[in-house]
Design a protein around this nucleic acid. Structure first.
Lengths: 353, 353
DNA sequence: CTGAAAGCGCTTACAG
DNA sequence: CTGAAAGCGCTTACAG
């Protein structure tokens, strides 16, 4: 009783309970409390329960800064991205935050630009300064094998999200862009299109090649060809969609359908079609990629390949933190994501069959 | 020489230079190095230069975890938001990241939901656990005075972004939503509209009242009235824009122009107009708010009030970290932001004058 | 203007 | 299975 009061008095006035308080209250050493907190096996059930009881009663939460200093590793998870599409970024963030919810980890943002002078250095200096628990790399940075090698050298854990197998499976969340693009091709082929164009993104993204090849394969499966004169290179943004769309639609034997590497460029093609006096889908069918919100809001609503970005972000974060947390360890079935085709009103059979 | 080698040998093999290394190499105490790093005044020029030279040569970067533990304050800046608009979120993030660039601070994301059961607690427990350098609060969380009071009690610094004066000026970045809405009203009045509707957002946001009142004031300045039967409450999202648009346009004496509280709802009104067989802008003029990317991508491009969100994010972060960094201290002229009207093709004179 | 000691709240390395 | 000591890399509080 008197003892309880005396110990209570020693608890700091700002209300923060420390490991020493818990140790004293439970009548064990700090090291034992540490063992319980870190879920180490070698603690007797009796001791563990005694400590857990005190932790629950006091509301003790270990100080992340102190743990980080001692562990030489912080509780930050870095999300590294160079995707110009805000919707992609937000969805990925949401997925990661879903997984980090109710854990000790915090999400810190690391946008980057592979063309910038300080490109890998900024990321690497974040890593060596802050020693994050790990990094989640999204395309196209995820495809920079020089970067991942540097991370390994710095002993920094990471997960890559990519459309191709890039790293050991335990570090790779795969999206089947090739298969998704094939769905787009089959859809257009089944509608009866034969003159079909494609606007792809910057070749820096490995997904660009995957989508192109998947699309080509899908057409070939229906005896169709993707003619080189119907292929254009865009920049994954709206303006390049407008420009490439104008270009493709200005030729005499223009395509009757266009598949774009993302929704942003598809929306650009809408503008080019309008300028050319072409109705969608009667005169021109359009298929996008990503299923971002604008796909549903624009008129006519855009047929597009759906990529479950939020789920992918969640899986990536779980994979990263799951290496230590046992409850997240069974992820084998989530390492790879198939894509769907969202069929809307921007596609129909071509008029001039 | 032999001495140099001996000291060099003592530097840890993982390449991390510590304050002790710098102190030894510069022939001063750790405390003096600490003074230089933290820009404290009471160091002689000679000593300061000696230390800075060693810091430059060794590439010493103070360990943020150790500093955080000793300072009882981390180098994290939390961005707290409950805005459902991804574009707003991304732009705000970009602005904050602009300001944090080349500083020691990292951005951590704290999305929240004021209707959730763990609403303020999750934020407060982040604060008491991670002791962030400060928080940036955006609408509508920024308007929760119970939250800011709790933050002050926890001795947590913060900056609020809001359309009304909410806190002491040193903690408040203001956006002049009222004035922006007035611009929208004047534009429609000058075009000759007299039956004008308004779809506002959830009253939880103070900006909703500001925009409504500013719009009303702008109309009244032109002798026009905002009739209660032309006012609807939306949810700041696409679906509610469609629903409120349908509702407003289904009446016999429907308005010839609609001002919506954000672009998302404006795009919803496009759908309702299309369903009702109304042409934009000939039969119906629409004005949005925010100037998000969709405003330029949709057809016809949307006239909307532009809010410089990225700049606001930058100013908020500079204000927060500027309390200590002298180079950011002159911010008086950036504490308040006027809005512009982006006039595009969704507005014109009404047909039935 | 400068420094030696103690401390921030944890974990590691070691011992038993 | 458990603990005492030392250490992580800084800053605070104090002394001079």
């Amino acid at each position: 009783m008197a003892d309880d009061k005396a110990t209570a008095d020693r608890i700091r006035s700002d209300g923060a309970i420390t490991i020493s308080d818990v140790a004293r209250l439970a009548g064990v050493s700090k090291k034992t409390v540490s063992r319980v907190v870190n879920n180490e096996a070698t603690v007797s059930d009796e001791t563990r329960q005694k400590v857990q009881k005190v932790i629950a009663e006091t509301g003790f939460v270990p100080n992340p800064q102190a743990r980080a200093l001692a562990f030489r590793r912080s509780f930050l998870v870095g999300l590294v991205y160079d995707n110009p599409n805000p919707q992609y970024v937000v969805n990925m963030q949401r997925g990661v935050l879903d997984a980090l919810d109710n854990t000790d980890y915090q999400l810190v943002l690391q946008p980057c630009d592979r063309n910038s002078a300080d490109y890998p250095d900024r990321i690497l200096s974040f890593v060596s300064m802050h020693r994050p628990h790990g990094l989640i790399l999204t395309p196209s940075v995820s495809e920079d094998e020089a970067l991942t090698e540097s991370l390994r050298r710095l002993d920094c854990d990471y997960v890559v999200v990519a459309s191709v197998p890039l790293d050991i499976p335990q570090r790779n969340i795969r999206t089947h862009d090739r298969q998704g693009a094939r769905l787009a091709a089959e859809h257009l082929a089944q509608l009866g299109h034969t003159s079909i164009g494609h606007i792809h993104g910057p070749p820096l993204f490995r997904s660009v090649g995957e989508r192109l090849e998947g699309f080509r394969e899908g057409l070939e499966a229906h005896g169709l060809e993707l003619a080189p004169r119907y292929i254009r290179e865009g920049a994954y943004n709206f303006a390049s969609g407008v420009a490439c769309g104008r270009d493709l639609l200005s030729t005499e034997d223009r395509p009757t359908a266009i598949f774009t590497g993302n929704d942003e460029m598809a929306v650009g093609v809408y503008v080019a079609a309008r300028e050319a006096g072409l109705r969608i889908p009667e005169d021109l069918s359009i298929v996008g990629f990503d299923d971002t919100p604008i796909a549903e809001r624009i008129w006519p609503p855009l047929t597009t390949v759906r990529s479950p970005i939020r789920e992918i972000g969640r899986a990536a974060a779980r994979l990263l933190i799951g290496r230590k947390e046992p409850e997240f360890s069974d992820l084998s079935e989530h390492l790879s994501y198939a894509l769907d085709l969202m069929t809307r009103q921007s596609t129909s059979a071509p008029l001039k069959l």
